[in-house]
Computed example of a mutant assay.
Amino acid sequence: MSAVSLLICDDSSLARKQLLRSLPAAWQLDIHQAAGGVEALERIRKGGVDLLLLDLTMPDMDGYQVLAQLRDEGLDCKVIVVSADIQEEAVRRVLELGALAFIRKPADPVHLRQTLASLGMIGTELPMLGQRDAGDMVGFRDAVREVVNVAMGRAAALLARVLGVFVQLPIPNVNMLEVGELHMALADAAQGDKLTAVCQGYIGGGIAGEALLIFHDSEVADMARLMRADDYRELEMLLDLSSLLISACLSGIADQIDVVFSQGHPQVLGQHASIEELIRLNRERWKSTLAVEISYSLEGHDIHFDLLLLFTEDSVELLSRKLAYLMD
């Protein structure tokens, strides 16, 4: 039996590594990898690709666009979407665009094997023993970005159910920032608008930090309407939304690195405040930090808000140890 030509398309080297580890070791494969949608399409156009394992959230060309292009060009290639975006609407859209199946990240080897068997790609008798070579080591920032990507996908699915909307997910931005650089990053997010920020501390397994959810005041009233907040104050609505999003995101991270985070009570850092005031109030706490920025947008609404996960400098080494088994 000839080898199956498999193309894995994901901008995260960790995600590609996890997929390789999840594939049945005895399956005869000719494996190719692409770090983005444009690269994947170029490879498929050359012919000979039997199966594409496709991510959705990518910088140059997302998975939805790849699926649409495959359909429009009539390119013959089976597609299974493997994504952290587990919103029901995301699943519906990719199947409508021609994907044969949807698998949530990180891919469970048993579920992946069952899916491949149901599509006739492998036989049900194929053993799962052994582990496929997963390639080079993964960098720390890439590992953090992919772990957060999975977590924010779970949080978005919860938010989508609560609000009845489709949440557009970004690629998380991961950086080590000094307080001045953090100031600039927040100022860029603000773009001159007045802000209300809710902060919630967390700690677990020696890893500590603060989650900061930033709302633009011009969008708070629209968010309140979506939350059906007529019967309680906007501030309470922001605290409820912050607790929901931050808890879901931290829980998603904790599950992947095997820790349990304890969370403090959400606090309003500044209401109708400028970014300069927020920085002045918190300069001592944010001297140096591993900063993860997630910018959520709600489709069909002019609503955007930023979630910042600020890990203390002392937490970076511990976090790196927790991620080591993923990175090797």
Rank of each mutant, 00 (worst) to 15 (best):
D62R: 06
C199I: 10
L29N: 04
F261G: 01
I294C: 08
A117N: 08
E42R: 10
F102E: 02
G252T: 05
V94N: 03
A134Y: 03
L75Y: 00
V148E: 04
G205Q: 07
V49P: 03
A107D: 03
E293D: 10
E181F: 00
V150R: 11
L119W: 04
A324F: 06
V165E: 06
D217E: 13
A248V: 10
E277Y: 12
A254N: 02
E210V: 13
L239A: 11
I275T: 12
G209E: 06
A35Y: 14
R141F: 14
E276P: 07
P24N: 02
D85E: 10
Q200Y: 03
R113K: 10
C199M: 14
R280S: 12
D230Q: 11
L310M: 08
V179T: 15
P106H: 02
V259K: 03
V148Q: 01
S218I: 07
H32A: 13
V91D: 07
C9P: 08
A143D: 05
Q87T: 06
Q131M: 10
L238G: 05
D240G: 07
H272R: 14
V110H: 14
Q131Y: 12
E89H: 03
V91T: 10
S218G: 11
D255F: 06
L177F: 04
G63C: 00
D255R: 12
L67V: 01
L158E: 10
S118Y: 09
V198H: 09
R21C: 09
R280A: 15
V292I: 09
A99K: 08
Q267P: 07
E234C: 13
F102N: 03
H265G: 14
A15I: 09
H272G: 12
E276W: 09
A84L: 05
D136G: 11
S22T: 07
S243L: 08
E210Y: 13
Q87F: 05
R93F: 05
Q168V: 11
K17C: 03
V162I: 12
L250P: 04
S288E: 15
G135F: 02
D230K: 15
Y232N: 00
I275M: 14
I275W: 13
Q87P: 04
F261N: 08
Y296P: 04
V94A: 00
M152S: 15
T57Q: 12
R283I: 11
L212C: 08
D306T: 15
S83R: 00
C9E: 07
F305R: 07
A156L: 04
G252P: 07
L129T: 12
I31C: 12
